[in-house]
Design a binder for these strands. Structure first.
Lengths: 197, 197
DNA sequence: CAGCGAAGCGGAGAAGCTCTCCGAAATCGG
DNA sequence: CCGATTTCGGAGAGCTTCTCCGCTTCGCTG
């Protein structure tokens, strides 16, 4: 998964090396200066020309996606590990908390990505995460600790929403946690009117 | 409320006229080209020089805020009207739905604003909206139709979150409504355990 | 009405950004 | 080692945001 194009096209060694240099520089630079960091600056830091950067990543979104990618992989690994723990409910809660942290840390990147990508695909990030969530959620639903009418996609959206909307509340650092607790409450709750079953 | 500085400093007539011309041009241009529209273009359309635009609005955020302002006023009016209707619960639900629509329509502006304003104040928009929400929510809480541990700020954040995170789900237009319904369910629910209060 | 101080205008232009183009250089299979 | 091919890199076009400052316009005051 090279994140800039096909999976395993054999490319020249210098191309592969530059690719990695650029991603590393991008990771650092985005972390320091936010998602609007200059791409020229990233190229400079990677020790390549701007042309090279644009050859590898045709636009800022592609670069953001690449940087986001490995953090997402980490998150999926976490989910997989949690799947083999005791409490379905606890696993879901813990993972959602981890996901929220992730989303808040990367909110800048993710939000920019959302704004920038009206059309570009690249967003199978979302799909991957949804799959991780689905596994945890459906186990909890089978367990009876999560309401059955909740879809993983909706759940993720909700938590992403919390992350985005609390991104800049420096004043109230507990808010995100509070909102997540609130959502978790709602996950446990029975649907209000749903007499059947 | 002139949205670019002090409330009622008496300014020269040409300055006031230009202010309005700029806001109007900005409203149109943002609507057409999104929140990244060129400020030069806006100045051109308003028939003023770039210098004049920047004298009135020191940065893009200020301009976005001004444009957002009157839509927010509309929303507050709606809230005030709903306060004098029968059902506290229904009023809250209806207003949240309206707010969600607003937030989704203006997501581009609002999201950009959030990203851009790491430090700038200007965000009393949020405060104004929170006040409107507070009135409706506390009535519902007194009525017993909303859980008492929910703060208006948190509620708004949650709905903003839905708006932001569903902004680009063209594929599933019902999702935002579904998520809102879910949140409304949670608003009705009792707190599960009184732990942290 | 005439004149004057100050507020405000506007456009030239600096600085910096994204992204393209293409001659030069590096790579790799034979 | 050599030629075909990929890839590099940086000059530069065309944007952008934002500043500076000489000139215009306003509105008060005598």
């Amino acid at each position: 998964m090279t994140a800039d194009g096909l999976i395993s096209v054999r490319r020249r060694s210098d191309a592969r090396r530059n690719h990695d240099l650029i991603v590393t520089a991008a990771r650092e630079t985005f972390a320091e200066s936010g998602p609007d960091a200059s791409l020229n600056e990233i190229a400079r830091r990677a020790g390549v020309g701007p042309g090279t950067l644009y050859r590898h990543f045709p636009n800022r979104s592609a670069l953001l996606t690449a940087v986001l990618k490995d953090r997402i992989d980490t998150l999926c690994g976490h989910a997989r590990r949690l799947l083999s723990t005791e409490s379905a409910d606890g696993a879901l809660a813990e993972w959602l908390r981890a996901f929220l942290d992730h989303a808040r840390v990367n909110q800048g990147l993710a939000c920019t990505l959302m704004l920038e990508e009206r059309d570009t695909p690249g967003l199978d990030c979302q799909r991957v995460i949804e799959e991780a969530a689905a596994a945890l959620l459906s186990r909890a639903q089978r367990d009876g600790t999560a309401r059955p009418d909740l879809t993983p996609g909706d759940l993720i959206q909700l938590v992403v929403g919390i992350a985005l909307s609390t991104a800049r509340s420096d004043d109230d650092p507990g808010r995100a946690d509070r909102l997540l607790a609130f959502v978790l409450d709602a996950v446990h709750a029975r649907p209000r009117r749903e007499a059947g079953a």
